[in-house]
Design a protein around this nucleic acid. Structure first.
Length: 426
RNA sequence: GCGGGUAUGGCGAAACGGUUAUCGCGCUUGGUUGUGGCCCAGGAGUUCUGGGUUCGAUUCCCAGUACUCGCCCCA
């Protein structure tokens, strides 16, 4: 019988990789706190209705959107969250956060799920760092969200990245634009690939980021939303741009940047790193002023982003950045079994209690000193403490410096080992 | 769901249409009686599965499966 295997699209994070995650999450936490964000945690599973907002049959929706859904005994559906924003807004509403000082700035970490085929930097379970500002319409909030993301990349040591920025309008100007775009594309129907002809009916905006050939030329002459924004949306964007420019942030207006989720209004942005494969978006986000109402809450503006941690790790590696290694024990306790093992255990736990990382040689039966020393040599051990019968009889242990230039081994009082180590390493 | 690529021991590789399929790394044990890093020796692997071609396949062909990259979807 072959061993049970990990499910496709899921991954194990091994110690060698985990240091990258700790590095990123540490920086992210630090920055979020510096920006005044508060940590929350929300459930991984939510009602399907949180994600399928009035798009007809819920079952069609989660199949089409490649969502992990589970049918309950009463016929309703729950879903593994595909993203954080909707859940964060739900938490804001459910917990009456509108009565807190506004805006409310929240961050979280955790997994999200999409039932899709694996590719480079794309998994069925992926992890995000997510930040949201709720209850604020000021474009400075959009800026804060963008700068938090960019500051994180900067602090992680990335060479300069640029924002892809666009506005997706609001409920008054977006439909007008969609109609203008649809009319234009319908006039050039013969130049559209089958997939894009399909999209023209379902979601014309997504044709803008079509990967079909020949779209660059066709779309260059298409209407651009930036020319169709209402006064409010236009001034929101220009205010944001003025602030970005004042801060010297790299960004480019990308009229083809659309995000697949319907709730975005005004600002949308992404940060790309093309070195990590076709799935180049390191993070993305935007404003969603209509979302709270759409899920049944009081109208509340919001803006936020989700940052993919797997992709951040890929990017760090592409950048050649090596995170610091975690501390490892520098003490090793060896013995010869029997009473010496009992004494070795005692010393080991005294050292650990005193705060020293200590590794104890395990040996069910007899084990040669050579084997134990070889084990010690695999780790960054500074001192091996050898508990032998001779020494034990006199109340001593042997302390053997393991590093180059550490001097010769010597005997020392067993009950003063902690003191010696304290002095030697202090 | 669709398409491309790849499938040899824990990892990285090599080999050949034909006797017990190599090598490095790693792991592990040992090299006399209680001691590391070098060196030496030993230990652990049904060449993904099932068909086909062939006297004979790990090596050729097909299917399946897995992994991987890309599309769809979207982060």
């Amino acid at each position: 019988m072959s061993a049970v295997k990990r499910l496709p699209g899921f991954q194990d994070i091994l110690p060698e990789d985990r240091i990258y995650w700790d590095y990123i999450m540490g920086k992210a936490t630090d920055l979020a706190q510096r920006f005044g964000f508060l940590r929350v945690d929300i459930p991984i599973i939510e009602s399907i209705n949180l994600f399928a907002r009035g798009n007809g049959e819920a079952s069609d929706f989660f199949v089409n959107k490649e969502m992990y859904a589970i049918e309950e005994s009463d016929g309703s559906y729950i879903a593994l969250r595909p993203e954080f924003t909707a859940g964060m807004v739900r938490a804001y509403i459910n917990n009456g956060m509108s009565s807190r000082p506004q805006p409310v700035k929240l961050y979280t970490f955790g997994p999200a799920f999409r039932r899709e085929r694996q590719q480079a930097g794309r998994f069925r379970q992926h992890n995000q760092f997510d930040c949201e500002i709720l209850g604020e319409t000021d474009p400075a909030a959009d800026l804060e969200i963008m700068m938090l993301a960019m500051s994180l990349y900067r602090e992680m040591g990335y060479s300069e990245l640029a924002f892809q920025l666009n506005s997706t309008g609001c409920k008054s100007c977006k439909p007008v634009y969609v109609e203008a775009l649809t009319t234009y594309l319908a006039d050039h129907l013969d130049k559209l690939a089958p997939i894009d002809q399909q999209r023209l009916k379902l979601n014309p905006l997504r044709i803008l980021d079509s990967k079909e050939k020949g779209m660059d030329a066709l779309l260059a002459d298409a209407p651009h939303i930036i020319d169709h924004l209402c006064d409010d949306c236009a001034s929101h964007l220009s205010d944001l741009r003025a602030m970005l420019e004042k801060l010297g942030a790299n960004y480019e207006i990308n009229f083809r940047l659309v995000r697949g989720i319907d709730y975005y209004t005004k600002t949308v942005f992404e940060v790309w790193d093309k070195r990590i494969g076709a799935q180049a978006a390191l993070c993305g986000g935007g404003r969603y002023d209509g979302l709270a109402e759409a899920i049944g809450g009081k109208s509340t503006p919001g803006v936020g982003f989700g940052l993919g941690l797997e992709r951040a790790v890929l990017g760090l590696k592409a950048e050649g950045i090596e995170p610091p290694s975690p501390p490892e024990p520098t003490l090793f306790v060896a013995h010869f079994g029997g009473d010496t093992k009992i004494a070795a255990v005692d010393i080991t736990y005294k050292l650990r209690a005193a705060g020293f990382g200590t590794r104890l040689a395990f040996a069910r039966d007899k084990r040669s000193m050579k084997s134990q020393m070889r084990e010690a040599n695999k780790y960054p051990i500074s001192h091996a403490i050898i508990v032998g019968e001779g020494e034990l009889a006199e109340g001593n242990v042997t302390i053997r410096p393991m590093l180059e230039g550490g001097g010769d081994q010597f005997q020392h009082r067993a009950d003063q080992v902690v003191d010696y180590i304290q002095q030697a390493t202090g």
